[in-house]
Design a protein around this nucleic acid. Structure first.
Lengths: 163, 163
DNA sequence: GTCGTTGCAAAAGTTTTGCACGTTA
DNA sequence: TAACGTGCAAAACTTTTGCAACGAC
Protein backbone atom coordinates (compact mmCIF):
# COMPACT_ATOMS: atom_id res chain seq x y z
CA UNK A 1 0.00 0.00 0.00
CA UNK A 2 1.10 3.53 -0.63
CA UNK A 3 -0.21 4.42 2.80
CA UNK A 4 1.82 1.75 4.53
CA UNK A 5 4.84 2.68 2.52
CA UNK A 6 4.51 6.30 3.54
CA UNK A 7 4.08 5.34 7.15
CA UNK A 8 7.16 3.18 7.00
CA UNK A 9 9.08 5.99 5.37
CA UNK A 10 7.91 8.37 8.09
CA UNK A 11 9.07 5.89 10.70
CA UNK A 12 12.46 5.48 9.07
CA UNK A 13 12.91 9.23 8.93
CA UNK A 14 12.02 9.52 12.59
CA UNK A 15 14.53 6.80 13.45
CA UNK A 16 17.23 8.53 11.45
CA UNK A 17 16.50 11.83 13.16
CA UNK A 18 16.51 10.06 16.52
CA UNK A 19 19.94 8.55 15.87
CA UNK A 20 21.31 11.88 14.81
CA UNK A 21 20.05 13.68 17.91
CA UNK A 22 21.43 10.95 20.13
CA UNK A 23 24.83 11.32 18.51
CA UNK A 24 24.59 15.07 18.85
CA UNK A 25 23.92 14.82 22.58
CA UNK A 26 26.39 11.99 23.11
CA UNK A 27 23.84 9.52 24.37
CA UNK A 28 23.62 5.92 23.30
CA UNK A 29 20.95 4.45 21.07
CA UNK A 30 19.34 1.57 22.93
CA UNK A 31 16.33 -0.51 21.93
CA UNK A 32 14.48 0.84 24.96
CA UNK A 33 15.08 4.46 24.00
CA UNK A 34 14.13 3.87 20.40
CA UNK A 35 10.89 2.06 21.20
CA UNK A 36 9.87 4.64 23.79
CA UNK A 37 10.54 7.41 21.32
CA UNK A 38 8.60 5.70 18.53
CA UNK A 39 5.68 5.01 20.83
CA UNK A 40 5.36 8.67 21.76
CA UNK A 41 5.71 9.66 18.10
CA UNK A 42 2.99 7.21 17.12
CA UNK A 43 0.68 8.40 19.91
CA UNK A 44 -1.87 11.11 19.45
CA UNK A 45 -3.25 11.24 22.97
CA UNK A 46 -0.44 12.74 25.05
CA UNK A 47 0.46 9.55 26.91
CA UNK A 48 1.68 9.37 30.48
CA UNK A 49 4.83 7.46 31.44
CA UNK A 50 2.59 4.59 32.49
CA UNK A 51 0.82 4.59 29.11
CA UNK A 52 4.13 4.45 27.30
CA UNK A 53 5.30 1.68 29.60
CA UNK A 54 2.28 -0.48 28.78
CA UNK A 55 2.74 0.05 25.05
CA UNK A 56 6.48 -0.51 24.96
CA UNK A 57 6.15 -3.62 27.12
CA UNK A 58 4.45 -5.39 24.21
CA UNK A 59 7.68 -5.20 22.24
CA UNK A 60 10.18 -5.26 25.09
CA UNK A 61 8.56 -7.34 27.83
CA UNK A 62 11.43 -6.92 30.28
CA UNK A 63 11.45 -3.13 30.25
CA UNK A 64 10.89 -1.45 33.59
CA UNK A 65 8.79 1.56 34.42
CA UNK A 66 11.72 3.50 35.80
CA UNK A 67 13.54 3.14 32.50
CA UNK A 68 10.53 4.70 30.84
CA UNK A 69 10.60 7.60 33.29
CA UNK A 70 14.34 8.09 32.85
CA UNK A 71 14.15 7.80 29.09
CA UNK A 72 11.24 10.22 28.70
CA UNK A 73 13.17 12.77 30.75
CA UNK A 74 16.21 12.24 28.59
CA UNK A 75 14.22 12.53 25.38
CA UNK A 76 12.56 15.70 26.66
CA UNK A 77 15.96 17.21 27.44
CA UNK A 78 17.10 16.42 23.92
CA UNK A 79 13.96 17.98 22.48
CA UNK A 80 12.79 14.69 20.95
CA UNK A 81 9.55 14.76 22.91
CA UNK A 82 7.92 17.49 24.99
CA UNK A 83 6.51 17.48 28.47
CA UNK A 84 2.99 18.84 28.25
CA UNK A 85 3.35 21.00 31.33
CA UNK A 86 6.67 22.69 31.55
CA UNK A 87 6.34 23.62 35.19
CA UNK A 88 4.96 20.48 36.76
CA UNK A 89 5.66 20.48 40.42
CA UNK A 90 3.14 20.48 43.19
CA UNK A 91 -0.34 21.90 43.05
CA UNK A 92 -0.32 25.57 43.86
CA UNK A 93 -3.13 27.76 45.13
CA UNK A 94 -4.13 31.28 44.30
CA UNK A 95 -6.37 33.70 46.20
CA UNK A 96 -7.14 35.36 42.89
CA UNK A 97 -10.21 33.52 41.68
CA UNK A 98 -10.96 36.04 38.94
CA UNK A 99 -9.98 35.17 35.39
CA UNK A 100 -6.30 35.87 34.90
CA UNK A 101 -3.15 34.55 33.28
CA UNK A 102 0.23 33.49 34.59
CA UNK A 103 3.79 34.64 34.19
CA UNK A 104 6.06 31.74 35.09
CA UNK A 105 9.76 32.24 35.78
CA UNK A 106 11.54 29.16 34.49
CA UNK A 107 14.53 29.87 36.77
CA UNK A 108 13.00 30.41 40.20
CA UNK A 109 9.56 28.93 39.39
CA UNK A 110 7.80 31.98 40.79
CA UNK A 111 4.36 32.57 39.35
CA UNK A 112 2.85 36.00 38.90
CA UNK A 113 -0.70 36.83 37.85
CA UNK A 114 -1.64 39.29 35.16
CA UNK A 115 -4.77 40.42 33.40
CA UNK A 116 -5.16 40.61 29.65
CA UNK A 117 -8.76 41.47 28.79
CA UNK A 118 -7.89 42.04 25.12
CA UNK A 119 -6.92 38.40 24.75
CA UNK A 120 -10.38 37.27 25.73
CA UNK A 121 -11.80 39.38 22.89
CA UNK A 122 -9.64 37.75 20.24
CA UNK A 123 -11.56 34.92 18.57
CA UNK A 124 -9.92 31.50 18.58
CA UNK A 125 -8.78 30.02 15.27
CA UNK A 126 -11.50 28.19 13.29
CA UNK A 127 -10.01 24.73 13.89
CA UNK A 128 -11.05 24.95 17.52
CA UNK A 129 -14.71 24.90 16.57
CA UNK A 130 -14.48 21.38 15.22
CA UNK A 131 -12.83 20.26 18.45
CA UNK A 132 -15.73 21.22 20.68
CA UNK A 133 -16.80 24.04 22.96
CA UNK A 134 -14.11 26.37 24.27
CA UNK A 135 -14.97 27.89 27.64
CA UNK A 136 -11.90 29.67 28.94
CA UNK A 137 -8.50 30.77 27.75
CA UNK A 138 -5.64 30.51 30.17
CA UNK A 139 -2.29 31.82 29.03
CA UNK A 140 1.00 30.76 30.56
CA UNK A 141 3.84 33.04 29.65
CA UNK A 142 7.19 31.41 30.26
CA UNK A 143 10.18 33.62 30.79
CA UNK A 144 12.61 34.92 33.37
CA UNK A 145 11.58 37.35 36.08
CA UNK A 146 13.43 40.60 36.70
CA UNK A 147 15.05 39.34 39.88
CA UNK A 148 16.52 36.29 38.15
CA UNK A 149 17.58 38.38 35.15
CA UNK A 150 19.56 40.61 37.49
CA UNK A 151 21.22 37.67 39.22
CA UNK A 152 22.52 35.92 36.15
CA UNK A 153 22.91 38.48 33.42
CA UNK A 154 23.51 36.93 30.05
CA UNK A 155 23.07 33.31 31.06
CA UNK A 156 20.14 32.77 28.75
CA UNK A 157 19.97 29.02 28.62
CA UNK A 158 21.34 26.01 30.45
CA UNK A 159 23.37 23.70 28.27
CA UNK A 160 21.54 20.50 27.44
CA UNK A 161 22.91 17.33 28.97
CA UNK A 162 26.64 16.90 28.68
CA UNK A 163 27.45 18.72 25.49
CA UNK B 1 -2.12 53.77 61.14
CA UNK B 2 -4.42 54.20 58.20
CA UNK B 3 -2.58 51.39 56.44
CA UNK B 4 -3.05 48.97 59.30
CA UNK B 5 -6.64 49.98 59.60
CA UNK B 6 -7.23 49.33 55.93
CA UNK B 7 -5.53 45.98 56.13
CA UNK B 8 -7.64 45.02 59.09
CA UNK B 9 -10.73 46.15 57.28
CA UNK B 10 -9.72 44.09 54.25
CA UNK B 11 -9.25 41.09 56.51
CA UNK B 12 -12.63 41.56 58.14
CA UNK B 13 -14.29 41.82 54.77
CA UNK B 14 -12.60 38.63 53.65
CA UNK B 15 -13.74 36.85 56.79
CA UNK B 16 -17.30 38.02 56.28
CA UNK B 17 -17.25 36.84 52.68
CA UNK B 18 -15.76 33.54 53.80
CA UNK B 19 -18.55 32.99 56.34
CA UNK B 20 -21.16 33.80 53.78
CA UNK B 21 -19.78 31.37 51.21
CA UNK B 22 -19.54 28.66 53.85
CA UNK B 23 -23.16 29.16 54.74
CA UNK B 24 -24.09 29.16 51.09
CA UNK B 25 -22.40 25.80 50.54
CA UNK B 26 -23.54 24.36 53.84
CA UNK B 27 -20.06 23.77 55.22
CA UNK B 28 -18.97 24.64 58.72
CA UNK B 29 -16.69 27.50 59.66
CA UNK B 30 -13.80 26.01 61.60
CA UNK B 31 -10.66 27.76 62.85
CA UNK B 32 -8.61 25.54 60.54
CA UNK B 33 -10.60 26.51 57.48
CA UNK B 34 -10.53 30.18 58.33
CA UNK B 35 -6.79 30.31 58.95
CA UNK B 36 -6.00 28.33 55.81
CA UNK B 37 -8.18 30.64 53.77
CA UNK B 38 -6.62 33.77 55.27
CA UNK B 39 -3.13 32.46 54.70
CA UNK B 40 -3.80 31.92 51.00
CA UNK B 41 -5.43 35.35 50.76
CA UNK B 42 -2.43 36.96 52.45
CA UNK B 43 0.03 35.10 50.20
CA UNK B 44 1.32 36.51 46.96
CA UNK B 45 3.49 33.61 45.88
CA UNK B 46 1.02 30.86 44.94
CA UNK B 47 1.76 28.61 47.91
CA UNK B 48 1.68 24.83 47.85
CA UNK B 49 -0.28 22.82 50.42
CA UNK B 50 2.97 22.31 52.31
CA UNK B 51 3.65 26.08 52.33
CA UNK B 52 0.21 26.76 53.73
CA UNK B 53 0.68 24.03 56.31
CA UNK B 54 3.90 25.61 57.59
CA UNK B 55 2.30 29.04 57.82
CA UNK B 56 -0.93 27.94 59.47
CA UNK B 57 0.97 25.78 61.95
CA UNK B 58 2.30 28.95 63.59
CA UNK B 59 -1.21 29.84 64.68
CA UNK B 60 -2.70 26.35 65.01
CA UNK B 61 0.20 24.11 66.07
CA UNK B 62 -1.86 20.92 66.10
CA UNK B 63 -3.12 21.20 62.54
CA UNK B 64 -2.26 18.31 60.26
CA UNK B 65 -1.12 18.37 56.66
CA UNK B 66 -4.04 16.30 55.46
CA UNK B 67 -6.46 18.84 56.88
CA UNK B 68 -4.69 21.45 54.78
CA UNK B 69 -5.05 19.29 51.67
CA UNK B 70 -8.71 18.60 52.38
CA UNK B 71 -9.46 22.20 53.20
CA UNK B 72 -7.72 23.61 50.13
CA UNK B 73 -9.75 21.26 47.96
CA UNK B 74 -12.93 22.33 49.71
CA UNK B 75 -12.09 26.02 49.36
CA UNK B 76 -11.29 25.52 45.69
CA UNK B 77 -14.64 23.81 45.13
CA UNK B 78 -16.38 26.76 46.79
CA UNK B 79 -14.42 29.20 44.64
CA UNK B 80 -12.72 30.79 47.63
CA UNK B 81 -9.27 29.94 46.29
CA UNK B 82 -8.12 28.66 42.90
CA UNK B 83 -5.90 25.79 41.92
CA UNK B 84 -3.21 27.16 39.64
CA UNK B 85 -3.38 24.23 37.24
CA UNK B 86 -6.86 23.06 36.53
CA UNK B 87 -5.85 19.76 35.00
CA UNK B 88 -3.16 18.51 37.33
CA UNK B 89 -2.74 14.82 36.94
CA UNK B 90 0.33 13.01 35.76
CA UNK B 91 3.00 14.36 33.50
CA UNK B 92 2.10 13.86 29.88
CA UNK B 93 4.32 13.71 26.84
CA UNK B 94 3.91 15.04 23.35
CA UNK B 95 5.74 14.15 20.15
CA UNK B 96 4.96 17.63 18.88
CA UNK B 97 7.96 19.65 19.99
CA UNK B 98 7.07 22.64 17.82
CA UNK B 99 5.41 25.61 19.46
CA UNK B 100 1.72 24.92 19.90
CA UNK B 101 -1.17 25.37 22.27
CA UNK B 102 -3.52 22.96 24.02
CA UNK B 103 -7.22 22.29 24.01
CA UNK B 104 -8.10 20.51 27.24
CA UNK B 105 -11.40 18.71 27.68
CA UNK B 106 -12.41 19.14 31.30
CA UNK B 107 -14.70 16.10 31.10
CA UNK B 108 -12.52 13.37 29.61
CA UNK B 109 -9.17 15.12 30.18
CA UNK B 110 -8.15 14.58 26.57
CA UNK B 111 -5.62 17.08 25.29
CA UNK B 112 -5.47 18.24 21.67
CA UNK B 113 -2.81 20.40 20.07
CA UNK B 114 -3.49 23.40 17.92
CA UNK B 115 -1.52 26.15 16.24
CA UNK B 116 -2.30 29.83 16.55
CA UNK B 117 0.44 31.85 14.86
CA UNK B 118 -1.58 35.08 15.15
CA UNK B 119 -1.41 34.88 18.93
CA UNK B 120 2.36 34.97 18.86
CA UNK B 121 2.18 38.23 16.94
CA UNK B 122 -0.03 39.97 19.50
CA UNK B 123 2.14 41.98 21.89
CA UNK B 124 1.77 41.22 25.59
CA UNK B 125 0.28 43.91 27.84
CA UNK B 126 2.78 46.52 29.11
CA UNK B 127 2.69 45.26 32.71
CA UNK B 128 4.60 42.16 31.62
CA UNK B 129 7.66 44.21 30.80
CA UNK B 130 8.19 45.19 34.40
CA UNK B 131 7.94 41.54 35.41
CA UNK B 132 10.89 40.40 33.32
CA UNK B 133 11.61 38.78 29.98
CA UNK B 134 8.80 36.84 28.32
CA UNK B 135 10.03 34.03 26.10
CA UNK B 136 7.04 31.95 25.07
CA UNK B 137 3.29 32.06 25.21
CA UNK B 138 1.46 28.85 25.90
CA UNK B 139 -2.29 28.92 25.79
CA UNK B 140 -4.51 26.36 27.48
CA UNK B 141 -8.06 26.46 26.25
CA UNK B 142 -10.39 24.70 28.64
CA UNK B 143 -13.65 23.38 27.31
CA UNK B 144 -15.53 20.26 26.34
CA UNK B 145 -14.59 18.19 23.31
CA UNK B 146 -17.14 17.23 20.64
CA UNK B 147 -17.30 13.62 21.80
CA UNK B 148 -18.15 14.59 25.37
CA UNK B 149 -20.62 17.23 24.18
CA UNK B 150 -22.47 14.54 22.26
CA UNK B 151 -22.57 12.21 25.24
CA UNK B 152 -24.03 14.60 27.77
CA UNK B 153 -25.96 17.22 25.88
CA UNK B 154 -27.01 20.09 28.07
CA UNK B 155 -25.16 19.06 31.23
CA UNK B 156 -23.01 22.15 31.25
CA UNK B 157 -21.69 22.12 34.75
CA UNK B 158 -21.51 19.82 37.76
CA UNK B 159 -23.20 21.26 40.85
CA UNK B 160 -20.75 22.38 43.49
CA UNK B 161 -20.58 20.28 46.65
CA UNK B 162 -23.91 19.36 48.15
CA UNK B 163 -26.11 22.26 47.20
C1' DG C 1 -27.37 16.18 70.13
C1' DT C 2 -26.20 15.49 65.41
C1' DC C 3 -23.41 15.34 61.87
C1' DG C 4 -19.62 17.40 59.58
C1' DT C 5 -14.60 18.00 60.44
C1' DT C 6 -10.18 17.03 62.41
C1' DG C 7 -5.93 14.51 63.54
C1' DC C 8 -3.54 10.45 63.31
C1' DA C 9 -1.80 6.78 60.81
C1' DA C 10 -1.52 4.18 57.04
C1' DA C 11 -2.11 3.66 52.18
C1' DA C 12 -2.01 4.93 47.45
C1' DG C 13 0.05 6.78 43.57
C1' DT C 14 3.81 8.97 40.97
C1' DT C 15 8.56 9.71 40.34
C1' DT C 16 13.44 9.18 41.75
C1' DT C 17 17.65 6.77 43.18
C1' DG C 18 21.47 3.21 44.53
C1' DC C 19 23.56 -0.58 42.84
C1' DA C 20 25.05 -4.64 40.23
C1' DC C 21 24.81 -6.37 35.70
C1' DG C 22 24.47 -5.87 30.77
C1' DT C 23 25.02 -3.31 26.42
C1' DT C 24 26.56 0.29 23.25
C1' DA C 25 30.01 2.70 20.84
C1' DT D 1 36.86 -2.32 27.00
C1' DA D 2 35.19 1.74 29.17
C1' DA D 3 31.34 4.21 29.99
C1' DC D 4 26.77 4.47 29.79
C1' DG D 5 22.19 2.49 30.39
C1' DT D 6 19.03 -0.99 32.28
C1' DG D 7 16.41 -3.65 35.65
C1' DC D 8 15.37 -4.45 40.21
C1' DA D 9 14.21 -2.93 44.58
C1' DA D 10 13.63 0.39 47.72
C1' DA D 11 12.97 5.11 48.84
C1' DA D 12 11.13 9.71 48.42
C1' DC D 13 7.53 12.58 47.89
C1' DT D 14 2.79 14.26 47.19
C1' DT D 15 -1.85 13.35 47.96
C1' DT D 16 -5.76 10.48 49.59
C1' DT D 17 -8.43 7.69 52.82
C1' DG D 18 -10.36 4.98 57.07
C1' DC D 19 -11.56 5.78 61.53
C1' DA D 20 -12.26 7.38 66.23
C1' DA D 21 -12.65 11.63 68.74
C1' DC D 22 -13.93 16.35 68.62
C1' DG D 23 -16.41 20.59 67.76
C1' DA D 24 -19.66 23.75 65.07
C1' DC D 25 -24.30 24.62 64.43
Amino acid sequence: MTMAHNEDQFRQEKIAAFRQVCKQYGIKVTPQRLEIFLEVVRSNNHPTAEDVFELVRKKLPTISLDTVYRTLSTLAECGLVAKVYIIQDRTRFDPNVAHHHHLVCVRCKAIADFQWPELDEVPLPPCVETWGRADAKHLQVLGVCAKCLGQREGATQEPHLKR
